[in-house]
Nucleic acid binder design. Structure first.
Length: 801
RNA sequence: GCGGAUAUGGUGAAAUUGGCAGACACGCAAGAUUUAGGUUCUUGUGCCGCAAGGCGUGCAGGUUCGAUUCCUGUUAUCCGCACCA
């Protein structure tokens, strides 16, 4: 009896669809479970095995939860705006809308062939007008609430994609899309004030269930530091040079100041700087370097002293020289620092190179050799002298600074405001109008969506202008406030916009009056379990948590955090152990596996290959092992008898398996859940026969992993209604242990024998049985008994001398 | 430099609060079935050793009757951030 997986899989996929087996119900009294997987970017390459692993985890959990009686929302959609599609569209001279629709159709067909239990009736697409209407609505709300601003700053610009990138999208100085070097450019661009939410993004982490490393990475990204702002007078002016430091306790050790080359005070006092030509030359040199180069030349400190300008130390009135150097960044703190070479290694290196004094203010290190950053007794520090720990020195210094009006406590974040714009076609148009009289005015809410004009030519301009700027009928408009002539903003939103709130739309995907009905949000939110990749932990997750908190503040969503629980799936590496990539030729196409072995084998294998959270290399021969398993499951029908009970032989095994599989699924240990089913299968074949009840239990447990073959067996053997609507099996805790169990017997901690004892044996009984064993008796013969113990169900250890 | 992780057979990996290291699977070997290949089935498989026995979870110590698990030190690899003041 051969299992024809091709026919069976197509058949069951159709049946599930027709019976709406996976449709989430609105207005239900049932307990809800909202399982979310990161919706894919529908690229031209089609589905990757990584997608399959990413969805298979919560796929299994969702199927189990439905069988447990939950109302499950397990949705899918398309994160379809973005540069990749647009670049492909330009290359092939096809409209990005068409490219997107083709790719979505391809992905959909592929996902359906794997048999995922998504609720397709809630499918969303970020490029649909009735979806991005609400993306624009959220943007306008942020605009109205002062979270949107424009600023002319140095931005990360990708010369190849001709687009401004956020810090997050240009990590390591490379464009996240095309990997070319990013350059710094002065440009007026849009920002979202995410830093206003920095503290809440941090404290919110205490209320959610994310893995520790995910939290750590977000904490690190937000990068909160506590310190002080201190104002140094510029000698001979009324100007204050404001700096930020985390070590105000070392203020008496300051021997020079450093400003970022771009610091505005340099131009303001250009006339007083005797060597301004030299300064200009240095600045020009710095501007040529990319930020990446600047941060790579860690060892070699460069800089120029500002002749004729010096600062005054506010606590002791000493005059100190000022330098500009590119190891100080304009983008962090105030763009200027107080340098304490004795206790900061970077300052120390700079001081050594430029022959500047080094004054020790904390004892404990050898400042001739290197800076000392540790704790110790304060010296050369006036009112701080004698204090011995950092905390009280900082507290004392802050007290004095605040008392004398010289500075104050302050907090800084590494996270910067979110550069929120693209000069490209394939994104949500930013719904703002520039009016010469009224300034920036939001597009009226009732005019949303502001749709992308349908154009032939969507190639980016060479000057960093959006292609939309070339379309007069789009650009020219009237000001909604004064009715005068005005121009539309032509930048579009970055790819991360649509994905920052998509989970909300799943709760009510077709609503035309608000982003989602509050009652439905109230029922479904928050997301109970969100699975995805590590690469989205700092960008997508922080962005969407920010949007969500804002939406909470304006009353649009019922809870403050979007995701109650987060898990991470590990990468699937190529068979050679390297990351899969087209250039290495080690990419595995999941549909090849479906064609050759069936969807159930693919699904089982990606979960069986190892710990769900770890990366693991693909192995074709292990796939065959899973194929063998599925075939052996199918062949259970050949040893089926007609009993409707558990057999005596297998009752404990089945109870154990029900317990283990259920628990393992909840703990993301899909690999050991499958292993437990394999063990049970081996036991069944050893027993030589299976009852109808046993078969029903077995296929129900396996159903979330391998839904097609189990449904087919269920139908062929007439074991009841569709498994998708069956009940998850229960177990009897009393029947999970065998009456007689094997335990280890150790003498002096070394394994010497194994004996059988009754499961409920007490210490005395177990020890008696152990000592009765001939090998053990020989081992302890004639020796003094020091200690003996029995660990219930595990082992006996007898210590003798 | 900061933060996080990982290290177990030939391979992917298992191992409740410290309690039989290597479950499960791959691979390999031998055998059975098959005209042959493939499939399927049976048996064996951590290392050394003929055996008794010994050795084994990156390395070196420690705590303990007992350590893959806890502590101290150390090495290697991977990931994220990074002249962050």
């Amino acid at each position: 009896m051969n299992y024809d997986f091709k026919t069976a899989e197509a058949k069951w996929q159709k049946k599930w669809e027709e019976s709406e087996a996976f449709k989430a119900e609105d207005n239900s009294d049932k307990k809800k479970f909202f399982a979310l997987v990161e919706f894919p970017y529908p690229s031209g390459a089609g589905m990757h095995v990584g997608h399959i692993k990413a969805y298979s985890g919560l796929e299994v959990t969702s199927r189990k939860r439905r069988m447990e009686g939950f109302n499950v929302l397990f949705p899918i959609g398309w994160d379809a705006f973005g540069l990749n599609t647009e670049n492909y569209a330009i290359k092939t001279k096809t409209h990005p809308r068409k490219v997107t629709m083709d790719n979505v159709a391809h992905f959909t067909a592929q996902l359906k062939r794997v048999g995922f239990s998504f609720d397709w009736s809630r499918e969303i697409n970020t490029t649909d007008e009735d979806y991005y209407k609400w993306t624009q609505w959220i943007f306008l709300k942020m605009f109205d609430n002062g979270l949107v601003f424009r600023d002319r700053t140095l931005v990360n610009y990708c010369p190849s994609c001709k687009v401004v990138l956020s810090n997050e999208d240009s990590q390591g100085g490379k464009c996240d899309v095309c990997h070319s070097d990013v350059v710094q450019r002065a440009k007026e661009v849009w920002y979202l004030r995410i830093t206003a939410y920095a503290d809440r993004l941090l404290t919110g982490l205490d209320t959610v269930d994310y893995p520790a490393n995910v939290k750590a990475q977000q904490v690190n990204w937000i990068g909160r530091s506590e310190g002080a702002f201190v104002n140094f007078a510029l000698a001979g002016t009324n100007e204050k040079l404001r700096i930020y430091t985390t070590r105000p306790d070392t203020l008496f050790g300051v021997t020079f100041m450093v400003m970022a080359p771009e610091h505005p005070l340099i131009d303001k006092y250009a006339e007083q700087i005797a060597n301004f030509d030299e300064v200009k030359a240095y600045r020009a040199e710095c501007a040529k370097k990319t930020e990446f180069e600047r941060t790579q030349l860690v060892k070699d400190k460069t800089g120029v002293k500002l002749d004729g300008l010096c600062a005054v130390n506010p606590v002791n009135g000493k005059e100190i020289p000022i330098y500009i150097a590119d190891y100080v960044m304009m983008g962090y703190g105030t763009g200027a620092i107080m340098a304490v070479p004795a206790h900061d290694q970077r300052d120390w290196e700079f001081a050594k190179k430029f022959g500047i004094d080094i004054i020790e203010v904390i004892k404990g290190g050898d400042i001739e050799k290197e800076a000392y950053a540790g704790d110790g007794e304060m010296v050369n520090s006036d009112f701080l002298d004698g204090l011995t720990d950092k905390k009280s020195s900082i507290a004392k210094m802050l007290e004095v600074l605040e008392e004398r009006g010289l500075g104050e406590k302050g907090v800084q974040y590494k996270m910067k405001d979110w550069a929120f714009n693209r000069q490209r076609y394939w994104g949500e148009p930013i719904p703002i109008i520039h009016c010469p009289a009224c300034g920036m005015v939001g597009v009226p809410y009732d005019e949303l969506p502001l749709t992308l004009p349908k154009v032939e030519n969507f190639e980016p301009g060479s000057d960093g202008e959006s292609p939309l700027a070339k379309i007069d009928e789009f650009v020219n408009c009237t000001c909604p406030r004064c009715g005068g002539k005005a121009k539309r903003e032509t930048d579009t939103m970055p790819q991360w916009a649509g994905s920052s709130w998509y989970y909300l739309r799943y709760c009510d995907p077709h609503n035309d009056t608000c982003l989602a009905d509050p009652e439905k949000l109230n029922y479904w939110m928050p997301v109970d379990w969100y699975n995805g990749g590590m690469e989205h932990v700092t960008r997508h997750m922080i962005y969407s948590r920010f949007w969500h908190k804002f939406l909470y503040d304006i009353g649009a969503v019922p809870c403050e955090e979007p995701y109650a629980k987060r898990s991470i799936q590990g990468l699937i590496l190529g068979p050679d152990g390297d990351k899969m990539s087209k250039s290495k030729g080690n990419v595995v196409d999941p549909l090849d596996v479906v064609d050759e072995y069936g969807a159930d084998v693919l699904r089982t294998y990606v979960l069986f290959m190892g710990d769900y959270g770890q990366s693991a290399p693909w192995s074709d021969s292990s796939v065959k092992g899973c194929k063998r398993f599925i075939d052996r499951v199918w062949n259970l029908q050949t040893i089926l008898n007609d009993s409707e009970e558990y057999s005596e032989k297998l009752e404990t095994g089945f109870n154990k398996a029900v317990k283990k599989v259920g628990e393992d699924i909840e703990n993301l240990k899909y690999n050991t859940a499958i292993a437990a089913l394999m063990t049970l299968l081996n036991d069944i074949y050893d027993a030589g026969s299976i009852t109808r009840k046993e078969l029903k239990t077995f296929i129900t447990l396996l159903n979330p992993f391998a839904p097609h073959v189990t449904e087919e067996i269920n139908e062929v053997q007439n074991l009841g209604s569709m498994l998708a609507k069956a009940q998850w099996p229960t177990y009897d805790p009393d029947k999970c242990v065998d009456a007689l169990i094997e335990i280890a017997v150790q003498v002096n901690g070394k394994l010497r024998a194994r004996v059988m004892v009754p499961a409920d044996a007490d210490d005395a009984a177990a020890l008696e049985i152990a000592k009765a064993n001939a090998d053990i008796a020989a081992q302890i013969e004639g020796k003094t008994l020091i200690k003996e113990l029995y660990v219930k169900g595990r082992l006996v250890n007898i210590v003798v001398r």
